[in-house]
Amino acid sequence: MANPIEQFKIQPLVPLKVGGLDISFTNSSAMMVLSVCLITLFLTLSVRSRALVPGRWQSMAEVFYEFIAGMLRENVGSEGRKYFPFIFSLFMFVLFGNLLGMMPIPVIGFTYTSHVIVTFAMALVVFTGVTVIGFARHGTHYLRMFFPEGAPIATAVILIPIELISYFSRPFSLAVRLFANMTVGHIILKVMGGFVVSLGAFYLVPGVVPFAFLSAVTVLEFGIALLQAYVFTILSCIYLHDAIHMH
């Protein structure tokens, strides 16, 4: 049986080094580039005809657009409009990373969202951006976030550190959630696939059971790929709302 951890291994395809910094083009990089290409192709080609009554592809692109626009409108309000391209890019990038990771792509097949450094970098960008927006809009008043109104002053000693840690744990929980979901899902798929192969190779009948289970888990994983992209994006929206409205 193949090692279920093997799939997360990064393979350099074109080793590159600039000024002592390793920037090798790897299977992970290839998947990121592929995602960007596919997203752009999908979104531009589908609306090429600018049909009034959209076809299948065009309405899919429109659904994504409306979905993110609606999410931003509901959670952030009209002030969130200028962050729409960022939130949209974020959602598409995570979604395509999750979905393409499910595809059996030869040589470069890889799930970049299963790498904590990638998810953490994205979460950190969201976190830093939100904090900057908060301070830019409210100045030092933004610090009021860390002490609940009306609480006794004496509790500040305990509450402020807890609130601070809670605030700083945002990018970690955002990153860990996505990374852990993707990693565990892919490990389960790999293990189930291994069962199917090893059992099915010797006896036809016992292989059917893990195969059925594998099919079910695959469907579930597609659902999780969608859900996690959604959760990542909506939490970003909620953080943005807090920074803009502070309540």
Binding site: I10, M32, V36, T40, L43, S89, F93, H115, V118, A121
Partner: peptide, 28 residues
């Protein structure tokens, strides 16, 4: 592999952001 991952993440994500703002989103 942290460095190459981050480098390519930044590169691809910025590219995606630019493509979205300048091409795809205005079209849709």
């Amino acid at each position: 592999f942290f460095a190459p991952q981050l480098f390519w993440l930044v590169l691809t994500f910025v590219t995606l952001y630019i493509l979205m703002t300048s091409v795809a989103l205005p079209k849709i």
